[in-house]
Amino acid sequence: MIVRIMGEGQVRLAESRLAELDALDEELLAEMENGDGPGFRATLKALLAKVHELGEPLPDDALEPSDLILPSPEATLEEVRELLSDDGLIPGP
């Protein structure tokens, strides 16, 4: 699957690796619901770092349709709320 990180580019990530992101996604969702700004920021950065760790970056000139769009590391709580589904940022199994 192709994951776009807004402002950074795209990463190819095996769908089987999504489960490894679920705990961070759940933590991020809880921090957003509680209005925990510092926790939200740290968890968002950890989630994006994990996507980079597990995925393979696509070349800058590649334009693949994105299966999943994640916010930039600088995104605000409000911006991320707009991207959320009932499952969080990462679709559940």
Rank of each mutant, 00 (worst) to 15 (best):
I69L: 09
E27R: 09
G92D: 13
D61N: 11
A30N: 13
A23V: 06
M32T: 04
E78S: 09
M32G: 12
E20H: 12
E53S: 03
L54W: 09
A49V: 04
P57M: 01
I90V: 06
E15R: 14
P71T: 03
T43A: 09
K45Y: 01
E53N: 01
E20L: 10
P73R: 06
L44N: 02
D36Q: 11
L70P: 08
E53M: 06
L18C: 10
E56H: 10
L70I: 08
F40M: 05
G55F: 06
S66I: 07
L84C: 06
L44E: 04
N34C: 01
L24N: 03
G55H: 00
L54T: 05
G88R: 02
S85D: 05
D60R: 11
N34T: 08
A75E: 07
P57V: 07
E33K: 12
E53H: 11
G39V: 10
A42N: 07
P91F: 09
R81G: 04
D87S: 15
V51T: 03
L28W: 05
E79Q: 14
L77T: 08
L44W: 03
L70T: 11
L47D: 12
A46V: 01
L58W: 14
I90K: 02
E82W: 15
G88S: 00
L68H: 07
M32Y: 00
E64T: 12
D87F: 09
K50Q: 15
L44V: 04
L68G: 08
L63R: 15
D61Y: 15
L21T: 15
I90W: 03
G88L: 02
E26W: 05
I90S: 01
I69A: 14
S85G: 11
L54Y: 07
G35I: 00
L77H: 05
L21Q: 00
A14L: 11
E27L: 13
T76G: 13
A23I: 08
E31K: 14
A62L: 12
D67S: 11
L70C: 05
P71I: 07
D60P: 02
T76M: 08
T43E: 06
T76C: 05
P57H: 07
L13W: 09
A42W: 05
S85W: 04
D61V: 07
E53T: 10
G55M: 04
E78C: 06
K45C: 10
P71D: 04
G37Y: 13
K50H: 02
P91H: 02
P38M: 00
A42G: 00
D67G: 15
E15Y: 04
E26S: 07
T43Y: 01
